[in-house]
Design a binder for these strands. Sequence first.
DNA 1: ATAACATATGATCAACTGTTCATATGATAA
DNA 2: TTATCATATGAACAGTTGATCATATGTTAT
Lengths: 110, 110
Amino acid sequence: MKTHDHSKLLSDVSGQMPPDEVLAELSELFSVFGDSTRIKILWALFEREMCVCAIAELLKMTQSAISHQLKLLRHAKLVGSRREGKTIYYFLADDHVRSIIGQGMEHISE
Amino acid sequence: MKTHDHSKLLSDVSGQMPPDEVLAELSELFSVFGDSTRIKILWALFEREMCVCAIAELLKMTQSAISHQLKLLRHAKLVGSRREGKTIYYFLADDHVRSIIGQGMEHISE
DNA sequence: ATAACATATGATCAACTGTTCATATGATAA
DNA sequence: TTATCATATGAACAGTTGATCATATGTTAT
């Protein structure tokens, strides 16, 4: 399968590409946003911090399912948590979450 | 499993949540960004439009694999295409792609 | 110490995803 | 028309993912 020539294009473009490792990390970040349960959790936390069982009640899902997803969100540093007695409150880690989701909303609103 | 009371919180938060349908669409959009092959394709298109076989060469992947991924990107309206003879050129559909990926990059650079 | 509540975790399983392979479509040139 | 290049597509298969279930950990009150 001989194909037409791209040598100039390829050298130009590949010079601008970040290393594979960075692009992999980037796609992993977006895949965390790529699930409706996690998007719902993040959106809920836009309002205020919430404990696990409140999120579970809000989304009508089991505590276990929510806890598993919060673990992913924590590892991606999208949420933080603090303990108060038996309860653990989760909150948005920073404002990138808002701006990323905001841009996503803009895109689908067209 | 009786749990503590959240009635006030739940009514507050659920009033702010977009409908499930919208949140599902949003997560589907982000899942398109959630694959390193697709991220690489989008990043390549930051520079300029490219034909399928150039992208395949750049990423050292088969034409088929790239074509399948471009189909997804097209359906998500992240890229557009134009034909010129036998060749089909793909390009970024709009600037949301840049800003979404830009925000993602900011998040992981911390 | 025991009971009750809040959360976390490991195993399991069905559903989904991305690549490959083979093949089809579409366009151009001979 | 036939050959060739460029791209698209469908089936198949391995790898990944998200919910569930059972159970474990951690905290507080009695």
